[in-house]
Design a binder for these strands. Sequence first.
DNA 1: AAGAGGTTCAACCGCACAGAC
DNA 2: CGTCTGTGCGGTTGAACCTCT
Length: 382
Amino acid sequence: MGRAPCCEKVGIKRGRWTAEEDQILSSYIQSNGEGSWRSLPKNAGLKRCGKSCRLRWVNYLRSDLRRGNITPEEEELVVKMHSTLGNRWSLIASHLPGRTDNEIKNYWNSHLSRKLHYIRKSHNVPAVTMNPPPTSQRLPEKRRPGRTSRSAMKPKTHKQKTRKTKKTSAQPEPDANVAINAVVGQEALMMELSGAEADLGPRDDYYYGACHERGDCCNTNNNNNNNNLMSINGDNGVLSFDEHDIIDLLLDESDPGNVFTSSVGDGELSPLGDSTLARGSSETSNLGNLDCLQPCRSVESFLNYEHQVNDALTDEFIDWECVWQEGNKSNKLCDEKEAYDPVMSWLLNGDDEATIGQTNCEKFGEPLDHDEENALVAWLLS
DNA sequence: AAGAGGTTCAACCGCACAGAC
DNA sequence: CGTCTGTGCGGTTGAACCTCT
């Protein structure tokens, strides 16, 4: 049996809202409050679908909306968060006061995505240049349409409800895991979030990365040299994160270990703010620290096509010599701990999933050739 | 001035989640 | 436990607007 339509299709006005309709809707909500959208049109005397009323109010009529162009600071934030969260516009918008998800989404689609496209094009980097890593080690991808968990929603009229742990099989990557990907490699941050280092067990037993399947925590094989990996699987009752907490930490400029704030100047953003290269604020991480990331002037410069001609991108934002040196350091680390970053392994060695996570300490110290640089940049931009 | 093509963004759509029953 | 309802998310559409020729 099909689902009942949200409203009667006949007699419903569609298209642009008139000033008069806006006035009616605003007046009604001011006197009756938000909610009960289905019955609102009838009660307010509007020939509109309830969803349309809600959308009009949320995206246009609300008094706390911020009008005007997206500022560079807001743009930076959008880029940061999109690199981590993907197309989760509502979540992103919740951290931009007065901005709506629709506005952010439109801005991204009409401005930012095109800029990134130009960067790729100018750098001759296809969007996908290699086989992706296994799901468990990928950065967040486009999620399917539909709602996010209610706990991820911005608080509105109703109280925050306690989070349910129920997950369906159709949602292989829990939100918390997606967010965890964002802070991958930040052991200190993870400890801060967990508040219980001891609960994580011995160092050799955990790994960073999203465990996309319950009970199928990837690469937990302790004998497979993945000692630097951390298992975070809610089913094991080990850790449970609220993604807002994680985002707040991500954006916490005062946190010296913050993946977005380390080794860049005031108000500057590392374009590599997403997980992989930016990892390393802890001593156990494989790139050592964030010094390999050149401070970029701003996200504007990062996104600006004019700055990205030829190899400018990699040269401007990544100190490859530093990467090389850190790689040598990591080589020693590998010798000692046989710890190796599975994602870097994938970038530098792997062309199939079988190689992911394999230890290859010798290979790590080798300088990157042009193709590898391109591949790395492509991955970071993807 | 006018038409073509490109861009922006408000609005719509289908779907999925949570809670009530 | 299954069904229904309310809600709101992300993707898409298309009218309005802008720019170029």
